[in-house]
């Protein structure tokens, strides 16, 4: 067995989901290589070569890799595959991995397996279907297994303790059918939603975007990330990148505080693996209470400011 993990990074730092993908790859065997493609990513190569479980770091640098366009990265991965003959190719199930790996798989004429939550054997994987309402165990009989890894289902690999070698791979000539123009990332000093230890999320009960300030204040007391239900996103209170749920982000923090969220199935799919769930909702019948470890039936506009006060003590 030998596995290629396609690393996701910002040229300076490795994205946490890549560490989870490395853990998944290590379960398949100890031949784990990581491919870093970018414009100026010496720092990421250095970080990756210390990650536990990584044997080899493959580096390809070219201006064409700016913005990680799948049209440009796919030929690189195919060339790398041709050179090393991996049995498995994986990446994190983030916007990056979901965009890229199916394209690679189709070029290899293999069916990819999305968003796996468990590896049963080198060809058998568990993944969720129907927004987490069923678990499907699938056997992949393809010659090369291509899959993406759900970050919350695999512990991140240790950042220190490894000693990988690194090697340059040559970049195929640019394809030039796509152009990356710009990125508008939501600026925040708070932890990133999918890797935060504490997440505070708001739903339609917040009644407006302005009222989310309450949650930001609470989050700041807890060093938490702030998320939202699809209902709050659909109502225009907050941007879509805050959405927790099957069609948004999957999170599994140590503490998840759901405020004014009724608990639609598709929202539960995105957070029910959290270690401790707190629900604050004025409707005692809200389905969110069925998954909450601690439920508080209360008006959030009273309870949240009160909680901020109590935490100040």
């Amino acid at each position: 067995q030998s596995t290629l993990v396609v690393a996701e990074h910002s040229n300076d730092t490795l994205t946490p989901v890549t560490l989870s993908a490395i853990t998944a790859a290590s379960k398949l065997g100890d031949e784990v290589s990581c491919l870093v493609a970018g414009t100026n990513c010496a720092k990421v190569v250095e970080q990756l070569s210390r990650v536990q479980g990584v044997k080899k770091v493959l580096l390809a640098q070219h201006d064409a890799y700016k913005g990680s366009l799948p049209e440009e990265l796919t030929p690189l991965i195919l060339a790398t595959q041709k050179q090393f003959n991996f049995t498995h190719i994986c990446a994190g199930a983030s916007a990056f991995g979901k965009n890229l790996l199916p394209r690679v798989a189709a070029k290899l004429d293999v069916a990819p397996i999305s968003d796996i939550t468990e590896i049963t054997s080198p060809d058998t994987f568990v993944r969720t279907i129907y927004a987490g309402n069923a678990l499907s165990t699938v056997k992949c009989n393809e010659k090369i297994k291509v899959f993406t890894v759900r970050g919350t289902s695999f512990e991140p690999a240790a950042k220190e303790g490894g000693s990988a070698t690194s090697e340059q791979v040559s970049a195929p000539s640019p394809v030039g059918m796509s152009e990356w123009l710009e990125q508008n990332l939501t600026k925040t000093d708070r932890p990133e939603l999918t890797s935060a230890k504490v997440v505070v999320s708001g739903g339609r009960g917040l009644k407006s975007g302005e009222n989310f300030k309450l949650l930001y204040d609470l989050a700041d007391k807890l060093n938490a990330a702030v998320g939202a239900s699809r209902a709050a996103v659909d109502a225009g209170y907050v941007p879509n990148d805050m959405q927790v749920g099957q069609t948004g982000k999957i999170v599994a923090p140590e503490l998840y505080i759901a405020v004014g969220i009724s608990g639609a199935i598709q929202h539960l799919a995105g957070m029910k693996d959290s270690k401790t769930i707190v629900a604050i909702n004025k409707d005692p019948e809200a389905p969110i209470f069925q998954v909450a470890d601690y439920g508080l039936v209360a008006d959030l506009f009273k309870a949240v400011p009160e909680m901020i006060e109590v935490l100040k003590k």
Partner: peptide, 24 residues
Amino acid sequence: SRVEVLRVDEPPQRQAGVKVESVE
């Protein structure tokens, strides 16, 4: 197709916890 579904299961159910009376 070279992908076989071996089985489909119910996800583990999360047990509801307790109701608390106050923020404190």
